[in-house]
Every structure is written in C-alpha cells, then in structure tokens.
Design a protein around this nucleic acid. Structure first.
Lengths: 138, 138
DNA sequence: ACCGTATTGACAATCATTATCAATAAGGCT
DNA sequence: AGCCTTATTGATAATGATTGTCAATACGGT
C-alpha cells in the first residue's frame, strides 16, 4: 500500500501557502517559489496543493475566471469573506448558515448536502478612497 | 454605437437553455443543438450565453471541475439547490442569507458585498435507488 | 432592394490543469 | 552505512474549456 513520503517540495508548498495573505492559485505559488530560487516543478505544486486540500490543510475555491484558488486552513469548517481588491481573507464561522443549509436541503428532500458559500467585497483598507495613493509610494 | 441584432442563433441558445432541467455547460448546449440539426457554431454558443448572463437572463456558476455552467433565470436574486446526480435545480429565495451576508460583511468593515452561495446534494429521486442497494449488501 | 456593420463560424491561440514516464530520492531493512 | 523498493519528482506532451481572429454572412434601418 501507498506510504506517504515527506519531501522538501511539499514543505515548500505548505510554507509558501501559509505565507500568502489570501487565496492564491497554483501558478501563483509556483512563481513565488521560483522567485525564491526553488527548482520545484509546476506539476508538483499542483500535486502538493491537491494533497493539502485532500488532507483538509487547505481550502480551495473556483475563481470567476475559472482558476482554482487555495488558502492554508487547518481549522474546522468555515467560510470566507474576501477582499476583491487586495485578496485579504477573513474566516467566518457560520453555524447559522450550516443550520440554514441543512434545513433548506431537507425541506426539498435532498441529502448528502454540501455547499459553496463565499462572500466578496471591498475591505476597509482598500475602501479608504485616494488617500493611500499619495501616501503609499514605495 | 452598438445596436443589438436578433438572430436565430441567440433564440436557439435561449430556447435550449430554457429546456434544460438544470445547469448546463456551453459545450452541453452546443451538443444538444447539434443533435437537433442546428448548424450553430461553438463560439456562438459561448457568446450567446455570455450575453444572456450579462442581461440577467441566465445565472452562471463554476463547477468544481472548472467548467462554467448556465441556467435560465429571469427572476430576482436567489440561490440554488442542485442535485449532483441528475442536475435538477431548485431555486431558493434566501432573504435570511442576504441579511446575514450583509451583517457579517459590515462587521468586518467590508462594503460592496456580493456572494456566491450554492447548495449541492442528492435529491430524493436519485437517493432512493442507492438506499435499496445498501440494504442487500454486506 | 441596398448598405453598413453586428454577428457568425471555422479554426487558431491561450490558459489552467492533468497525464506520461524516465530519473530521482525517501525510508525501511539488513 | 549501504541497499532496495517504489513513491515522488520534473520536463513535457496532452487535454479540455474558453477566447481571439477574420473573412463571409445576414440583420434592420433607409
């Protein structure tokens, strides 16, 4: 039977993912790792992310442009409030929503219910008008 | 300035979409149309669907496999309960959810909030056969 | 019927993701 | 420590959905 092996590649992906502030794509992570001098392959990044998601160490969602985005996530089931400007993510424990989802599903005779719930918006920081444009020069 | 024109292709896509029982992909619709003898092009189906979605005549969502799925939808804002077996869709008016989403967002200082909420499960009809299967087995 | 141009359709191009497969290296064993 | 089995890697080809290109077509006002 298959015995999982530990490789520096998996650690690298796990670490890069934990450094990211919000949701990132596999391609993003690969670029980041490459820029840091890593020789990791693109396919390996995809595989590592799939493993992390399968092990519930990461959450994944589909962006509106069709990409799959990932985020480090060790905790229990929850959802996200994502800033569409800067990508900052806030985790939301939404027990009321779980309850609601199950109620609605059973009302319609559905079982084995899962759900996709993501909130998008503009965070306080990004919303503050033009101030940051003048101040924020590097 | 652009003046919209009416073509049989757009009507065909609109009609095929309204016939579909649940969410379908552009490729799906193209196959259906072809099977019905239509000579419509694939790119045109994509364009027609994009137009319908832009005109709020259709809802779109990303499947877990990365495809974009569409469904005829003229009504107000709502969400869906989708059977992952047969694709049957139930529309859900969820005012409580809208309220919840806005509350959570404002609590975290987010504005211009939008959300993605879809419920997946197995409907009563698709669930029935499986139950009887399990009864006789180990 | 005529004309200007929005729209079409065949196909090329793009982009994310997955499959392939020989080469490599993790980790148990002696 | 050295060996051996095989999980894993990485370069690249393949896939599949979607978009871009552009000459040919057809809608709709005149």
């Amino acid at each position: 039977m298959t015995v999982k092996r530990n490789t520096w590649q998996k650690d690298a992906v796990r670490h890069a993912l934990s450094e990211a502030k919000g949701f990132v794509s596999a391609q993003d992570l690969h670029h980041v790792l490459k820029n840091h001098g890593s020789t990791i392959g693109l396919a390996t990044v995809y595989r590592a992310l799939a493993d992390l998601a399968a092990a519930d160490e990461a959450d994944s969602l589909q962006s509106t442009t069709g990409e799959t985005l990932f985020r480090a996530c060790g905790d229990a089931h929850h959802h996200h409030l994502i800033c569409s400007e800067c990508g900052t993510t806030v985790e939301i424990a939404a027990s009321e929503i779980e309850t609601w989802a199950n109620k609605v599903a059973s009302q319609h005779g559905f079982s084995q219910v899962s759900h996709t719930i993501e909130l998008f918006g503009v965070c306080q920081h990004c919303n503050a008008p033009k101030l940051s444009e003048n101040i924020g020069s590097v």
